[in-house]
């Protein structure tokens, strides 16, 4: 019995397509999100609050004890992770998960910033931008190869007028011409 390559092509295209659906959606959604990184932050939202406390005496070298007292004045109950004194008057105090409170001792101006990872986009970007590295790199490579296989097998799913020898040829040509056009314009 001769090997029906077109049948196997369709099977591979169909099943690989099912398998890639999840990752394709993740990469597509995250791709749009990070594509516009200049105009928004795709990973975090920030809760920023500016308040004022009575001015405090400036100090050459703040200590942990000073920071604890400053936080008590602010009514801050969280335990600080560390702090950085930017000048005699300015100090940044850090908490878990990257939260920070900046205080100007001389003016009493306080600025609190709490980053919140976006619930859906943060994990999507985490995978899309390959933050995990390690085994995920291989998974992402396998996915990339799968996309190439999907593209190639997709060319030969149909035959005839709507296949690669008919309408498919025009659409495939257009799909290749679009990136070439932009390369010509911008490169």
């Amino acid at each position: 019995m001769p090997l029906n390559w077109r049948k196997w092509n369709a099977v591979i295209h169909r099943d690989l397509g099912y398998l890639c659906t999840g990752l394709t959606l993740i990469y597509a959604i995250s791709g749009v999100a990070v594509n516009h990184i200049h105009s928004w932050n795709p990973n975090y939202t920030f809760e920023r609050e500016s308040t004022r406390i009575p001015p405090l005496p400036s100090k050459e070298d703040l200590t942990d004890q000073d920071i604890i007292q400053i936080l008590a004045r602010l009514g801050e109950t969280r335990v600080h992770r560390s702090f950085f004194q930017k000048s005699r008057d300015e100090v940044d105090i850090f908490f878990a998960e990257g939260s920070a409170t900046s205080i100007n001792l001389r003016t009493g101006a306080v600025r609190q910033e709490r980053p919140r990872p976006r619930p859906v986009l943060y994990p999507m970007n985490f995978l899309h931008l390959n933050h995990p590295k390690k085994i995920w790199t291989w998974m992402a490579d396998a996915y990339a190869v799968s996309l190439a296989v999907l593209a190639l097998t997709g060319l030969f799913v149909l035959k005839g007028r709507k296949g690669i020898t008919g309408r498919g040829a025009w659409l495939t040509g257009a799909g290749i011409a679009i990136p070439l056009l932009f390369l010509f314009l911008y490169l």
Binding site: Y44, H80, R81, F94, A96, G98, S99, A100, P115, H131
Partner: peptide, 9 residues
């Protein structure tokens, strides 16, 4: 890619 959560570490 450095995470924002590294602040203070």
């Amino acid at each position: 890619i450095f995470p924002l959560s590294a602040r203070g570490q």
